[in-house]
């Protein structure tokens, strides 16, 4: 579909056989990042005691993420606030920018979400090894398992651990792509049914747009909260 196509903008850049051209995906990532910066800049500019609207939104996004980290990963994860906040805001803004007509949804491409999830996964794994050394491997050996079953259980645990980045990335990608495809399909119905029967799918499209905005927020939230949960596993090792 046209809305998921990646095409390059400007000249082709090749660095050592790697295509580094600026594409529409890069453009919309830049736009999302710029919007986040603008949003946070406007929200923190005035710092009045009685907050203005934008200041209120900025401050509540801060408390929202801070509370989420505190609830799921505990106070020891507080130093990872900047990382989680950045991740949350980037996914949220990328999803929301994608909701605008004629825009490109960065998160509807699995490679983008998979890279984000891999950053989390690799980072958390390294953190676990730094924090606990080889005891971190104890994550794969649950307590109270008979020795005979242990090899099988360890393999299952390793598969379960490796499935984390896959489930994290596929969830975000699938939700965004499915939602946009559905909107497109219903939009197509409106055109093909014409003036007589097109009103019903039009109504569905409106309702689906609302649902998509909810999903856009929800997926950013789920992405951030799962990062917190994985962080919690690495920081406070217990089974």
């Amino acid at each position: 579909m046209h809305q998921f196509e990646v095409y390059k903008i400007g000249p082709e850049i090749n660095l050592g056989g790697v295509n580094l051209s600026f594409t529409n995906a890069s453009l919309f990532m830049t736009i999302s990042s710029a919007l986040i910066l603008l949003f946070l800049f406007l929200g923190t500019k005035k710092k009045s005691l009685v907050p203005t609207k934008i200041q209120f939104i900025t401050e509540s996004s801060y408390t929202f993420v801070a509370k989420m980290i505190n609830d799921t990963a505990g106070s020891s994860a507080k130093s990872f606030f900047p990382f989680i906040f950045t991740l949350f805001m980037f996914v949220l803004f990328a999803n929301m920018v994608g909701m605008l007509p004629y825009s490109f949804t960065v998160t509807s491409h699995i490679i983008v979400t998979f890279v984000l999830a891999s950053i989390v996964f690799i980072g958390v794994t390294i953190l676990g090894f730094i924090k606990h050394g080889f005891k971190y491997l104890g994550l794969f050996v649950p307590k109270g398992v008979p020795v005979v079953l242990l090899p099988l259980i360890v393999i299952i645990e390793i598969i379960s651990y490796l499935s984390r980045p896959v489930s994290l990335s596929v969830r975000l990608f699938a939700n965004m792509m499915a939602g946009h495809t559905m909107l497109k399909v219903f939009g197509g119905f409106v055109i093909s049914l014409g003036l007589l029967g097109g009103w019903l799918p039009l109504g569905f499209s409106v309702a689906l747009t609302g649902l998509e905005i909810l999903v856009a927020f929800l997926q950013a939230y789920v992405f951030a909260i799962l990062t917190c949960i994985y962080l919690n596993d690495a920081l406070n090792l217990h089974h």
């Binding site: 984390r164 896959v166 489930s167 596929v170 969830r171 699938a174 939700n175």
Partner: peptide
């Protein structure tokens, strides 16, 4: 709900 559904498939 969305979280659980993908977990099964991913593994």
């Amino acid at each position: 709900a969305l979280k659980i559904s993908t977990e099964l498939v991913a593994a």
